[in-house]
Design a binder for these strands. Structure first.
Lengths: 296, 296
DNA sequence: CATTCTCGAAAAATGAATTATTATGAACGC
DNA sequence: GCGTTCATAATAATTCATTTTTCGAGAATG
C-alpha cells in the first residue's frame, strides 16, 4: 500500500466517482480503476459499492477513510517538519476576516516580514466559518476569526479586542434619530456574505430593535459597504477602528452599542495537533509581541 | 513520497546503515541508496550524514523519523481497521507471564476459542518487561503482566489477583524452620531470567530476611523451578495457584507472606492509541466475563 | 415497449516510467 | 593492503499510465 493509492482512494471517496477522481488527480479513469482494484485486493475486501451513477463507500471503505486522511495529512506535515530547521522560512498561509485584514494586519504583517523575510506569507480573507474550515483541513496554517470559538482540534490565541459600532449615514446623529427616521420595518442592513460573524450579530441587534423584516443587501468589500452607508443606503455593523481608518470617516455616524453587543474578540486559531512550523511560531511571536506594544 | 520510501528511511535510521537496511528489507544495497537519495532530493535536505561506518541521522532526519514511524504504524492499522467488520477474526497476538499462562489462561483461552473460533490466537510467554515493550511496539496486541504499570500509551485492565507464596521443599514445614535450617547467607533463590517482576520481589524479600548474599539460580521453565524446589535446591516465589496446580504439589511447602509482599495483581495491557481490533475486543469481553464467573 | 443514447466503470493491450539488480569504483578505517 | 560501506552506471524487471474497447444501467425517444 502506497501513499498514492491512499490519495487515489480518498479522491474517489470524496468525489464519489472514478472518472471525477481521475480528473482531480490529473490522470485517466482506467488508472484509478486499476489502483482501487489493487487496493481492494490487498486489503481483501471491497471498498466501494459500484453503482451506476458512481461509487459509494462500503463499510470497510468508511473505516479506511479516516486513516487515509490522517496518513495524507501526516505525510504532508512530515515534509514540512523535516525541512523546518527552526529558521522561519517557506510558505505560510494565514486567513483573516475582511475587517481585521483592513486595520489590524498591516502593521503586524509589516513587522513579520521585517523579522522573517524568508517566509512567503499568503493572506486569504474569508468569513469566519470558511476560515475555521480552512484551518481544520490544513488549507490555512492559522486564521484570525471572531470569537468565541471552541474546538478540540484548534488552539486559540486572543489577538485583538474590537468595539463594534452601528454605522449609519452622517445625517443620523444618534440612534434615537435613526430609529425615528426609518420605517417600521427598519433600515436596510448592509452585510457581508453568509458565514460572517458580524452579520449574525447584526441580525440579532435588528431583532432586538424590532426590525425583524428589514431588507438585506449583500456586499463583498469593506469600502463598498462604508460607501453605501455614507450614501444612506442602509446601516451596518463594523469595528470602530475600521470606520475610523476609512476615507469615508467624515460621512458616517458611529453609534456605540452596549458591551454585550459591541464587544467582540478577534482570535487567532491554529491546529492543535501535529507539528507547528517555525514560520507559524514566528508569526505568533510577532502577534504576541505586537500585542504588548499595543497594550503598552 | 511513498510509504515504501518511508519504510526504507526508517530501516536505514534503525540499522544505521544502507547495507543492513537493504538486508532487512530484502533488497539490494544500491536500491536503498537510490531511494534515500530520491527522498532527500524530494524533501530538499540531507537526511543522513555519511560516515565510513554507516549512516547517522541529520537533524532533518531526526525530525522526520517520528513521522515515518507514525505513518508506518498508521498504514498497518488502517488495513486492520478496514478488514475488521466487527466480527472477531484474523490474527491476535497475546503475551503473558509464564505463571499466568500456566494457571489462568487455559480456561480463558478455551472460552475465547469457543466463542471466537475465527481468531488465530498466538501466545508468547516472556518476562513482564519484554511484554510491555512488545505491546508498545505493536508486536503484541495485548499482554498479561505483573502490576503495577503506569504508562500513558497503555490501557490497563485488572485481570487476576494472585497470592505469592514462598515455596520450599516439603521438609521445611514453616518459615521459622526454613530460616533456622539455612546458612547465614540464606538459601539459593530459584528465579526466572531478568525482567521478571516476581524475581525483583523475591530479591526484596531476601533482603528483608537478611539474606542479601544468597545464591541465585536461573531457570527458564515453571516445572523445572518447582522440581528444583522439591529437590531442595532452593526456594522460590510463585503464585499459590501455580503451586497448587503443579504435579509436585505434595513435595513442597508453601509459606504465606504478608499482604504487602504476597499480594500481586495481574494486569492486562493494550495500546491506548488507535484502533482496537474486534478480535481484541472479543478477548477483553472473555476476560471480563470470565472474571465475573471467577468472582461469583 | 422496444430502441437508442448517455454516462460511468471494467478490461485488455501497449508504451512509458519507475524500481530493482548486477557490476564496478571510490572513500575510509583497521 | 584488506575488508567495509556507500555511490554510480548500465541493464533487467516490474509497475504504472494511457488508449481503446467493451459492458451495464438508467434516461430519453419514438
Amino acid at each position: 500500500m502506497e501513499l498514492s493509492d491512499i490519495q487515489t482512494f480518498a479522491a474517489v471517496a470524496r468525489t464519489g466517482g472514478i472518472t471525477r477522481a481521475a480528473e482531480e488527480l490529473n490522470t485517466v479513469q482506467s488508472n484509478v480503476t486499476q489502483r482501487i482494484k489493487a487496493l481492494e485486493a490487498e486489503i481483501g475486501t471491497p471498498l466501494f459499492e459500484r453503482h451506476s451513477r458512481g461509487m459509494a463507500l462500503t463499510s470497510a471503505g468508511k473505516r479506511l477513510l479516516p486513516y487515509a486522511q490522517r496518513m495524507a495529512a501526516l505525510s504532508h506535515e512530515a515534509v514540512l517538519a523535516a525541512r523546518d530547521d527552526g529558521e522561519p522560512k517557506g510558505p505560510l498561509s494565514i486567513g483573516s476576516m475582511e475587517t481585521t485584514a483592513a486595520v489590524r494586519l498591516p502593521p503586524l504583517l509589516a513587522d513579520f516580514h521585517r523579522r522573517f523575510p524568508a517566509v512567503r506569507l499568503s493572506l486569504r480573507t474569508s468569513p469566519t466559518a470558511d476560515l475555521v474550515a480552512g484551518v481544520l483541513d490544513g488549507t490555512l496554517d492559522g486564521a484570525f476569526v471572531a470569537g468565541p470559538i471552541a474546538h478540540a482540534d484548534l488552539t486559540v490565541t486572543s489577538a485583538f479586542r474590537e468595539e463594534l459600532v452601528l454605522v449609519s449615514a452622517r445625517r443620523w446623529a444618534s440612534l434615537a434619530e435613526l430609529r425615528a427616521g426609518t420605517p417600521e420595518s427598519g433600515p436596510t442592513a448592509l452585510v457581508f456574505r453568509t458565514g460572517c460573524t458580524y452579520r449574525q450579530r447584526l441580525e440579532q441587534i435588528f431583532v432586538e430593535f424590532g426590525w425583524p423584516s428589514a431588507a438585506r443587501f449583500e456586499l463583498g468589500t469593506l469600502d463598498g459597504m462604508i460607501g453605501c452607508v455614507a450614501a444612506d443606503m442602509g446601516v451596518t455593523l463594523l469595528p470602530r477602528a475600521v470606520v475610523e481608518r476609512s476615507a469615508m470617516n467624515g460621512s458616517v455616524t458611529m453609534h456605540p452599542l452596549s458591551p454585550s453587543h459591541g464587544r467582540v474578540e478577534t482570535l487567532f486559531i491554529q491546529r492543535t495537533a501535529g507539528h507547528q512550523t517555525s514560520a507559524l511560531a514566528g508569526f505568533l511571536a510577532c502577534l504576541t509581541s505586537d500585542d504588548e506594544i499595543i497594550a503598552a
